Amino acid sequence: MSRSERLLDLLQTLRRHRRPVRGTQLAAEHAVSLRTIYRDIQTLVAQGAPIEGEAGIGYILQPGFTLPPLMFSSDEIEALLLGSGMVARAADPALAKAAQNALAKITAVLPANRGSEIEASGLLAGAIEPAVVDRVNLAPLRSAIRAEQKIWIAYHDRDGVATERRIWPITITYCARVRLLAAWCELRGSYRHFRTDRIAELAEVGERYPRRRRTLIKEWRELEGLPQPG
């Protein structure tokens, strides 16, 4: 790997983390010495990258710094291609179309000698037949998650018992053959998981939930024993 590639990889690593990352962690992840990490950080800062921190404490890349999409590696291009294909086969129609559009935009800005990698890729997302079919359009549900809005749902549990819930949706997990909605349930006063195929109806409430989704997700992850991002 050339030094320029290593510097770009280091920037990408810092972009993934929301909290300061220690030099020893960066050195281990990139398989280089701690001295090399310190030197590369100094080079990036000198070139204008807004990196804050110091040796022994950690480093963080300030929000807003972007890299041109032309810098994708071959592995990253294949990951994007495979990921968009998997989304296109497993998500609701609106999200599937968005995945195809995103890939088209990425292809359009790649250099001419790189665009052919998309067409010639040896990775394909195979067809899959969902075990269940959603009865409602998930696009409004995804919109409610982004906007931190409460929704009302008519739900049937695994025994077929019907209930109505007002919930604060925070995440949708796309499993291989089903989709799981995690939300705070006002009826139960706790976090609950709902299979989207068991939602018979949903409607916007027109009311924002009282806590930030970022806080709810952190709390939910702790209760589920899931690692926190970054």
Rank of each mutant, 00 (worst) to 15 (best):
His156Asn: 04
Gly58Tyr: 01
Gly23Lys: 02
Ala200Glu: 15
Tyr174Thr: 07
Gln12Met: 01
Trp168Ile: 09
Ile151Pro: 13
Pro210His: 13
Arg198Glu: 04
Ala79Ile: 14
Gly189Leu: 13
Thr196Cys: 13
Glu204Cys: 11
Tyr174Glu: 10
Glu204Tyr: 09
Trp184Asp: 08
Gly189Met: 15
Leu26Val: 01
Leu14Asn: 00
Ala102Ser: 11
Pro20His: 00
Trp152Arg: 13
Arg89Tyr: 07
Gly85Tyr: 12
Arg198Ile: 08
Arg39Trp: 04
Ala139Thr: 15
Arg146Pro: 02
Gln62Ser: 12
Ala144Lys: 11
Ala102Thr: 12
Leu10Gly: 01
Val178Asn: 13
Leu34Phe: 07
His156Ser: 08
Pro68Cys: 03
Asp75Ile: 08
Gly64His: 09
Arg212Asn: 08
Ile118Leu: 12
Glu164Ser: 10
Cys175Gly: 13
Leu138Lys: 09
Ser74Gln: 14
Ile106Ser: 05
Leu26Phe: 01
Pro140Glu: 10
Gly64Thr: 13
Arg213Pro: 02
Lys218Trp: 07
Arg16His: 00
Leu8Pro: 03
Arg19Phe: 01
Ala79Gln: 15
Arg188Met: 06
Ile170Gly: 01
Phe65Met: 02
Thr24Asn: 05
His30Thr: 02
Leu26Lys: 00
Val133Gln: 15
Leu80Tyr: 03
His30Ile: 05
Arg198Met: 03
Phe72Trp: 06
Phe72Ala: 07
Arg22Glu: 03
Arg179Met: 12
Leu180Val: 14
Ile41Trp: 03
Val21Asn: 00
Ser190Thr: 15
Thr24Leu: 00
Arg212Pro: 02
Ala182Thr: 11
Val21Ser: 00
Leu67Cys: 03
Arg198Val: 06
Gln42Tyr: 03
Ile170Phe: 06
Ser84Asn: 14
Val21Ile: 00
Glu219His: 07
Glu222Ile: 09
Glu78Tyr: 11
Val132Gly: 02
Val87Leu: 15
Val32Pro: 03
Glu117Leu: 14
Arg39Asp: 15
Ala49Ser: 10
Ser2Pro: 10
Leu226Gly: 00
Leu223Met: 12
Pro69Ala: 06
Gly160Val: 06
Ser4Glu: 14
His156Lys: 12
Glu186Lys: 14
Ser121Gln: 13
Ile118Asp: 06
Asp92Leu: 06
